[in-house]
Structure formats: structure tokens, C-alpha cells
């Protein structure tokens, strides 16, 4: 067939899904399938078994536990885009969602899938990291929570172990002091980013504190620009030029067919300026 032959099983529950994943080495979770099925169809990947979790109940909720926003793994991008909770309490994610592909893909693709797949040019992993969020994981050994800082390990590589399923992500709910910003450059709207930036910080008088500037499309994982962050935290908006210069240490993008590494680093600086200006005056 179009993909190489694989077995398929539909999980009735989370426990059932974990049980099924344990039956075959290399078994993969099928959620929205917007990346996985394309990879299968191009025969870039050939897992022996797909465990379909679309029938598992309870994974498609957007909740508002105290001080946090929790998005279930099966929440579709379109669902999150239409959510008032996300719009109000997770504005960074709301800003990023329209950049994810096109309506057809957003209707099917899931938040959890995007995080778990961890494409380095994808929007949501960067947002999760910028917001210092965390992910819930359930596996044969039970449930655990991993901080976004510890989740993205390498190219398409995460802290998810064999047989584990990402069940939800959590991010801190927005506060009046929170400033966030998002910008992306892509060949065409909806394409994977050439360079993107998801940013979050706390306004402190005229300055920013605890800033987290996360670039995507510039490395194997979403990348925090730690030196630039430190400059901005210390010098505020006056340090913008210095922060842009600091990106030379923070980011080491490689050439691809659409842009050279050098151009990407330049574009990262352009985005940093635009996003910082926006965070400086969010109502401009």
C-alpha cells in the first residue's frame, strides 16, 4: 500500500493504549496523524503497529486548574483556536495557533501530537518552553510530569520513553504582569517556520524579568536564547541591540535549502526586535 504495511489497533482507554503499545517494539501512537501519516506514506517511517488513541475519552478537554491552563493531548488545534480559555489565559498559544498549517490540518492535528512529535520548526513546542510549561506522561510505570525545560532532548527526540503517552500539557495562566510575543517567518503563511520566536516575560516597571525567548526552526529543538534573555532582564529595552548581538552565542542555525544559517540568525534578530517592541508596548 502507500505506506509500508503496519498493524492497527484502536485503544479503548488510556490503560488499553499503554497495554497495546507494549505489545510491539516500535509501536507508535496515532493521534491527529498530520505528521505521522505523511511520513508513513512517503515510507520515511515504518512502525509495525499504530495505536489509535482517538477513541480514548478524557484527553480532549481544555481545563483551568488553579493558576494554570491544561490542554488535553487530543485537543485539536482548531478546538484550541476557538477556545475562550486559551484566548484569555494562554494568549501566547492563541497567537501561535493560526501559524500552524491550514484549517484542514488544524481540524485534525492535535496539541499533544505536535508537542510529542517535537518538530524543531513547529510552533507549540516553542510556546510550551517559553511559558515554562509542563507535560503529563502516562506509561507502564505510571504517571509522571516533566517540565518543558527537560522535555525536548534532540531532533524529534523527547523525554517520552517507550510505551509512554503524552496526555496533557499545562502552562501558567496569564497574569496582568505577563507579557508575551510571537512572530514567525515562513516561506508562505502556514509553512514550517524559517525562523520563529515565542516569548514570555514578566513586566517590571519599564523592564522585563524572567524572560524566556524561545526560537524555533534554528536548531534540533526549540532553543532558549539565554544570553539575550539575560541582557534583556538586566538592561531592559535599552539592551535590545546588545540582546540581538547576543544571539550570535545563543543560536547556531544550520543552512537549509530555504535559508542559510547566517540568514536565519539575522532573521532571529529581526524577530527579537519586533517581539520585544511588541512586549514593550502590547497595546500599540
Amino acid at each position: 500500500m502507500k505506506p509500508a504495511a503496519f498493524a492497527y489497533a484502536k485503544a479503548r482507554s488510556l490503560d488499553h493504549a499503554i497495554e497495546l503499545l507494549g505489545t510491539r517494539e516500535g509501536a507508535r501512537v496515532l493521534a491527529g496523524g498530520q505528521s505521522l501519516i505523511a511520513a508513513l506514506n512517503m515510507r520515511l517511517d515504518a512502525p509495525p503497529l499504530l495505536v489509535d488513541i482517538n477513541g480514548v475519552s478524557g484527553l480532549d478537554r481544555i481545563e483551568r486548574p488553579d493558576g494554570q491552563v491544561e490542554i488535553g493531548a487530543l485537543v485539536r488545534h482548531a478546538q484550541a483556536l476557538g477556545s475562550q480559555v486559551v484566548a484569555r489565559d494562554a494568549p501566547l498559544i492563541a497567537r501561535a495557533l493560526p501559524h500552524i498549517a491550514h484549517p484542514a490540518i488544524r481540524n485534525r492535528g492535535t496539541v499533544g501530537g505536535s508537542i510529542a512529535y517535537a518538530d524543531p520548526a513547529a510552533e507549540l513546542p516553542a510556546c510550551l518552553l517559553a511559558l515554562a510549561g509542563e507535560v503529563d506522561i502516562t506509561g507502564p510505570a505510571g504517571r509522571r510530569t516533566v517540565k518543558a525545560d527537560d522535555f525536548f532532548l534532540g531532533l524529534f527526540e523527547t523525554a517520552l520513553g517507550p510505551g509512554e503517552i503524552l496526555t496533557a500539557i499545562r502552562v501558567p495562566a496569564a497574569t496582568p504582569q505577563m507579557r508575551c510575543g510571537f512572530a514567525e517567518l515562513a516561506r508562505r503563511h502556514g509553512d514550517y517556520a524559517l525562523v520563529g520566536l515565542a516569548a514570555c516575560a514578566r513586566a517590571d516597571g519599564a523592564g522585563l524579568r524572567d524572560s524566556r525567548f524561545v526560537f524555533f526552526g534554528v536548531g534540533a529543538t526549540p532553543v532558549r536564547a539565554r544570553k539575550a534573555e539575560a541582557v534583556l532582564d538586566a538592561r531592559g529595552f535599552d539592551g535590545l541591540d546588545e540582546a540581538v548581538a547576543a544571539l550570535a552565542d545563543d543560536l547556531h542555525p544550520e543552512d537549509d535549502i530555504h535559508a542559510s544559517g547566517k540568514a536565519k540568525r539575522h532573521l532571529a534578530g529581526v524577530l527579537l526586535r519586533r517581539v520585544v517592541r511588541e512586549m514593550q508596548d502590547p497595546w500599540a
Binding site: R187, R188, H189, G190, D191, Y192, I257, H258
Partner: peptide, 23 residues
Amino acid sequence: TYDADGQLLTGSYMDYALPRAST
């Protein structure tokens, strides 16, 4: 775009940027 070995690098619409309505 071809590489030096003659592989077509822009072999799908992810990499070959046809115009879209917004263009």
C-alpha cells in the same frame, strides 16, 4: 533545487513554494 548528485531537493509542496491565495 537539485543537489550536486542530482537529487531533487524540492520534491514536495513543503519545499516547493507554489503561490497560495494569500500570495
